[in-house]
Design a binder for these strands. Sequence first.
DNA 1: CAGGTCTATCTAACCGTTTAGACTCCTCAA
DNA 2: TTGAGGAGTCTAAACGGTTAGATAGACCTG
Lengths: 332, 332
Amino acid sequence: MATIRDVAKLAGVSVATVSAVINKNSGVRVSAELTRRVEEAIKELNYKPNRIARSLSKKENYTIGYIVPSITNFFFPQLAKAIEDIAFEKDYGVYLCNTDGKIERARYYLDSLIENRVAGIITTLTWEIEEIDFIENVLSQNIPVVGLAGARVNGKIDTVRPDDKEGARMAVEYLLGKGYNRIAFIGVKDSQTTVIRLSGYRQALLEAGLGYDEGLVGLASGFTNYEIRDIVTKLIRNYPELDAIFVFNDLMGTAVIDVLNRIGKKIPEDIAVMGFDDSIAAYTFPRMTTMSIPKVEMASIAMERLFKRINGDDSSPLDIKISPTLVEGNTT
Amino acid sequence: MATIRDVAKLAGVSVATVSAVINKNSGVRVSAELTRRVEEAIKELNYKPNRIARSLSKKENYTIGYIVPSITNFFFPQLAKAIEDIAFEKDYGVYLCNTDGKIERARYYLDSLIENRVAGIITTLTWEIEEIDFIENVLSQNIPVVGLAGARVNGKIDTVRPDDKEGARMAVEYLLGKGYNRIAFIGVKDSQTTVIRLSGYRQALLEAGLGYDEGLVGLASGFTNYEIRDIVTKLIRNYPELDAIFVFNDLMGTAVIDVLNRIGKKIPEDIAVMGFDDSIAAYTFPRMTTMSIPKVEMASIAMERLFKRINGDDSSPLDIKISPTLVEGNTT
DNA sequence: CAGGTCTATCTAACCGTTTAGACTCCTCAA
DNA sequence: TTGAGGAGTCTAAACGGTTAGATAGACCTG
């Protein structure tokens, strides 16, 4: 592969001149004649500057890392797209780091992103405690990190996320307003986001003067259908008067609908189902009622924060919450 | 940020020794005493090797690029996950390059991946002619490229893709077997994959002794609902006896179902709908009948080919076709 | 016309690794 | 006692860019 020295030799100039031609805007002026010769040589050799060498020399890397818990959860590709769009505009590349919910993979990627000297990292934090020291490790290497969606970890980094508690509260309030009053909640074990959404669910019930009954809360360890089947059937057995299920997110919501269909429950006549995040609600029939999270807006704000940090801003970290909005479907 | 020289100085050894300790398996032996001192210094300084420098020096880059037409099309994140999983195992990073269907973005990314000297590229080719010269450009820089899904471009690169023609033929054969005999096809304009799936549709009709009627084929320029609404209503107006629609992919299938629901058609009683790719069929209610593409298997084979090429294999390129399988749902 | 200024270009050091080859010891056989 | 061989460690030159500072003309100016 041709190098800048090959180009310089062929054009009969120095490497500095070639470099100046490549980086037109660097302030160094090159005569028309030499510019022409350099450009010809570049074409002749099909020369492509080596960004690795450039990064090393300039100590800057036009790459960011995006750490995502599950790229197959329909919610995240939409964030990924928004992130990638903005990065593209700014000439940044994006490293895709899918942790698959495994903390050792998050650890590996965080380390790997440091070693690759990325300019910054966008991450969805899902674990909580164990992550803190990794993040601090990254920050101590002067690589900014911004949390996108997920739960807040500490006050050390900017976070941009949906107002999960308020969103869940609104969702349950909506269900109550529709006349449902035996509402279950199904979420994910060991998920801080579940804890927060659950607290909104609880608050709405208490505000309405209804008690909070732990028996109405089911937590699954993942998104696999058979576990959700157990949870749903158990709920129905224990609470025959159950008339609505508020589910942690859309993906899980589809699993719940599937189970209800199989056991012959009519939606929404027998039981209403409501999702959260609007990642897939628009693609189900009947359309699932859900709380929509403005993903593009959220990702934009996160990226904006990240680039501010990359450019040296060290004001104190912000925790930005974005309000979800109700999208009424036909499952309630 | 600490460098290898800082570590060497603190440990009182040479950089070569530090390097040997970091790369244990390099064959160079280091005494226990010096190893200990180096490791202590690394910890003390929180030293992380700079992979950019390493890449430059070793002329190898543990990164591959994944060029994807649309990360928000549910089909692709599933491929992305499979690719990322395999890359992770081999200690490779993945650059996510979302072209959004824009050829200038594909061009940009291909160039950028060359400049970043990635080890290889996995790409879904969607355009056809214009892409060829880009791909050749990449190959001429000795960066292997493997086509995953999408249509074949030329005989210069390995391609791994579903057998689209056979899959479409099977789909239509299945519909005919169920007794439907006025079957429309809806696809995407300027898509080579549409052309291929369409040819399978045509073949099945001809094999069954039914004619091929161009009026039954609708092509949309994208996946937006209102355009699909026009296509569907026009089809129904022109062919009142229409009893089934075979749709290019699942994503589009959901749009078709949505339109049919809105105009009061019952599925599958009035009209059957069948998708392709099984990217989202499992999440719709009723579950959509579709042709399933074994995504993980396909991605694995593509990655296997890519790593063979990275390791110098230059046997002639293969075009590997994977047979889709029918997944019967409740929309037919 | 000497000296100053400006412009275009070049030389060489540097970014942080890897690694070939040189250099020391040390051991052991002849 | 000598010298060959090997183990452990080091020095210094790459890798392919960027860029500060040097250099050489060209052009003014008093």
